[in-house]
């Protein structure tokens, strides 16, 4: 079952406070960067639901991030509709629908096939947006007016203000976290974690495995869509790179770096990888060389990720301190 340990609770509170307070003291560049990190954090948590909890290794998760971003563009540029109360649910719905179709086709396979097929379908959507002149082709589409939350003609929350967007992203991240934590404690959440551990036994117990996997896939797709909505709004720009398999690979690195099967780990992974990239990319043109070495080093030496290290550190710390009487079950 998904439980939040004391050490992770501390990390969570620190993360929450840090992200919550930062805009009051920070400068504009980092406010934008942290908005990106929180969006990628939602993205990484959604992939962790698949990789870390359901046992589905999807290498095409950027597809849902990207179609949601293109949905934002469609409303803002093609329809000239700016109301985020309309765009946001629509973007999630499009991402969820794509996840339903791709998931329905993919979950009938397993192992290596599943990895390759999710990658191939994401690449298919990538090719679709790249080939179509309507969607801006390889260059993508820029837009000026950002979505805003409004009722009728009154604007409640203008997302072109970066502090507003920051706090919207922050709330979405917190909401996604709580949603996933509750979901993972629900009977459904326990069932998908059972699928990861022992699929055959879950099937023998009468669960419909494909149904559980597909549900998980669609939920993850919708959450990735939420992240795509923020990223498109933040950058006012969408291009096929949103759906590229490098984007899918990057978010997978975040999940593993943070430690799979841990929601706050995904947030830490997004934070660490983005900050690392942001710092070294300005130092050296060939910084991706370092990034590649870093990814390999994580696979070799830190397969449990940051959260795994925190947990084992705190366990060692507890062992070193005098034993306490355990209470409760």
């Amino acid at each position: 079952m998904y439980a939040i340990s004391r050490s992770s609770l501390i990390v969570l509170i620190l993360l929450g406070l840090g992200f919550g307070i930062y805009p009051l003291v920070g400068d504009s560049y980092y406010i934008r960067l942290l908005t990106k990190i929180m969006a990628l954090g939602i993205f990484a948590m959604s992939l962790d639901l698949l990789i870390g909890f359901t046992g589905l290794i999807s290498l095409g998760h950027a597809a849902f991030f990207g179609v949601s971003a293109y949905t934002v563009v469609w409303f803002v540029v093609k329809m000239e509709i700016l109301n985020a109360f309309l765009i946001f649910p629509a973007a999630l719905a499009v991402a969820g629908l794509c996840a339903l179709v791709i998931g329905w086709l993919s979950i009938r396979t397993a192992g290596i096939y599943f990895i390759m097929i999710t990658l191939a379908f994401a690449q298919m959507l990538h090719a679709f947006f790249k080939d179509q002149h309507y969607w801006g082709g390889t260059d993508g589409i820029n837009f000026n007016d950002k979505p805003m939350l409004m009722v009728g003609d009154t604007v409640l929350f203008d997302l072109s203000n970066k502090i507003n967007l920051y706090y919207l992203t922050f709330s979405l991240m917190v909401a996604a976290f709580i949603f996933l934590a509750v979901l993972l404690r629900s009977p459904f959440g326990r069932a998908i974690q059972g699928v990861k551990v022992n699929e055959g036994r879950m099937r023998a117990m009468g669960y419909n495995i494909n149904h559980l996997k597909l549900m998980s896939f669609v939920i993850a797709g919708c959450l990735a869509g939420a992240a795509g909505f923020i990223e498109a709004t933040r950058t006012s720009f969408v291009n096929p790179e949103y759906l590229s398999w490098h984007a899918s690979g990057n978010v997978m690195v975040m999940v593993i770096l943070g430690g799979m099967g841990s929601l706050y780990g995904s947030l830490l992974g997004a934070l660490a990888l983005t900050l690392l990239g942001d710092n070294i990319s300005s130092l050296w043109d060939h910084w991706l060389l370092i990034m590649g070495g870093f990814v390999i080093a994580v696979v070799m030496f830190m397969p449990d990720g940051i959260s795994g290290s925190i947990e084992s550190l705190s366990r060692r710390f507890r062992k070193a301190s005098p034993p306490r009487e355990e209470t409760g079950p």
Partner: peptide, 12 residues
């Protein structure tokens, strides 16, 4: 999963 990540790093 780790094979995917490792070879992804190799690509970079």
């Amino acid at each position: 999963l780790y094979q995917v990540l490792f070879t992804f790093g190799l690509i970079l």
